[in-house]
Structures are given as C-alpha cells and as structure tokens.
Design a protein around this nucleic acid. Structure first.
Lengths: 124, 124
DNA sequence: AAGGGTAGTTACCAAAAAGTACCTACTTTC
DNA sequence: GAAAGTAGGTACTTTTTGGTAACTACCCTT
C-alpha cells in the first residue's frame, strides 16, 4: 500500500497573511493548470490527470495534489481495489477559487488580443 | 549610468496560452506583494518600494520591476537628476489586474476565518 | 574628507525546486 | 511468461532561484 508520506512542506506562512498562504500554494508550477484541468474535465483519476498535463511528472503531480488536498481545494476519493482507483476533483472551495482564477484568465485573453492588434495595426 | 541590462528572461510561454504567460509573470516570489504595495500606497520610488517589502533584495526587486514594466502592468518614470529619481506605479492594466487579485485576497481571508472557527468551535 | 543616499548591476554561492529513473504489488492481456 | 497498467514512493541529479556583498557615479551633509 502507498503510505502517502510525501511531504508537502508549505513553509507555513511565517508572515501569517492569508493571501500569502494562498499564493504560496497556487504559485507552484503546474498547480493552476491542474486545477483548470479538473475544472473543465470534472473529477479525474491520477493517470488521466497526468495524461492531461503533458510534461508533468508523477512526483510533482503527487506533491501538488497533496497540497491542494490539505488545503481542501480538491478531494481525494480512494477505492482500494486492484488495480487501485483514486479520483481527484474540486471541492466547493475549489470551485470558488476557480471562479476567481477565471477572471484572471479573462484578463489574460483580453490583453493577448490587445497586444496582437498593437503588433499588427489595422491601418494598411 | 545604469544600463538596465538585467535580463527578465520570461520563458516566452512555449505553449502559447495567454494564461500561462500571466501566471508565469505573477508566480515569481514577491511579485504579487510588490503589486499590492503599489496598489495600496500609490506610486513609489525604488528605495521606498524596497523598504516596504522587508527581506526583498535589490536584485530581485529590479528583476520583478523589469518584467512587470515589460508587460505594461507598471510604469517606470525616470528623472535623470542627481541623485536619480525613479518612480514606479500601476498602469491601467495593473489596476485591472489588482481587482482580480483582490478577489483572491477576499477568498483567502474568508477561508482563514472558516479554518479558525473549525479549529476552535463555539460549542463550549 | 569620510559617510550616506540615489538606482541599480555584477559575480558568486546556497537553497529550493523540478526532472529522471527505478521500485512496489497485484491483475489483466498478449 | 512477459508486458502493461494501476497509484504512487525513493534516491539522485540537474536546473532554477534567491540572497549576499561589493561596485558604479555623483551629490549632500557632517
């Protein structure tokens, strides 16, 4: 049986600022992308999730999932069958978080369009 | 004269996703905190900014400011007087971004309160 | 005339993060 | 009977970051 001992080691936010803890969590590479995949695809098994994020290693995926689970942003549903079946999905907190991240996404898209129209002006 | 040659080296988002570029920018340590300080205090000079973010080194501050300037999230106002006077502040883009980040901040605060009330339930 | 403040830059080093490869234990499929 | 798939864990290496200290050039203050 896997012992789930991989240490997530969030530095525990010495400043005590709530935003600091949240940023520290989201700032890790892949983290937001993992959340976005879980949001658009619904709950996924470990392997499916990994296949949906090309380039992501098992090690890092496990770390990220542990941190997100600990913060109750995602849930972990474990069926100790053979082969084992573990499903991850967004909790209510996770969905709430995604609505905020979605706003960032909208901004990113808007800026991208703006930048393109600056790069190639319509005056031809 | 400082030659402003410090390479910001954003990995240029190989995936081409707009959100990826934005996250790559915001994800760096201190970046969001710098933006928050500029938002709450208004435009600040380099030294003032540094003093407002304890623990942040000149090197990293310069790197972050260059990246944010390049993305037009902050502006850089340079008066080549002696001593030199350089002021940084949020652009319209920056202010737009901060409204989105503020929502994350609200979520972080709410969760923090929730977690405390779970840790010490009112049933005494 | 020595020290401090201005806004950085550079080189060097230490720490943290991420990637790689290989391992479990069991079943199903080829 | 060997390979592949399940969900990770472990050890090792490499890459990326961030911090430190010293430096620029010029002025004002003590």
């Amino acid at each position: 049986m896997p012992n789930r001992s991989l240490k997530p080691k969030l530095p525990k936010s010495p400043s005590g600022c709530p935003m600091d803890s949240l940023l520290r969590l989201l700032m890790g590479q892949w983290t937001c992308y993992i959340l976005w995949v879980l949001c658009t695809n619904g709950p996924l098994r470990f392997g499916e999730l990994k296949r949906n994020v090309p380039g992501l290693s098992s090690k890092v995926l496990t770390e990220r999932l542990r941190m997100l689970e600990e913060s109750r942003i995602i849930f972990r549903d474990h069926h100790p069958s053979i082969p084992p079946q573990v499903t991850y999905g967004l909790t209510e907190r996770g969905k709430e978080l995604l609505t905020a991240l979605d706003e960032l996404f909208e901004i990113a898209k808007r800026w991208c369009v703006e930048d393109e129209s600056v790069a190639s002006p319509e005056s031809l």
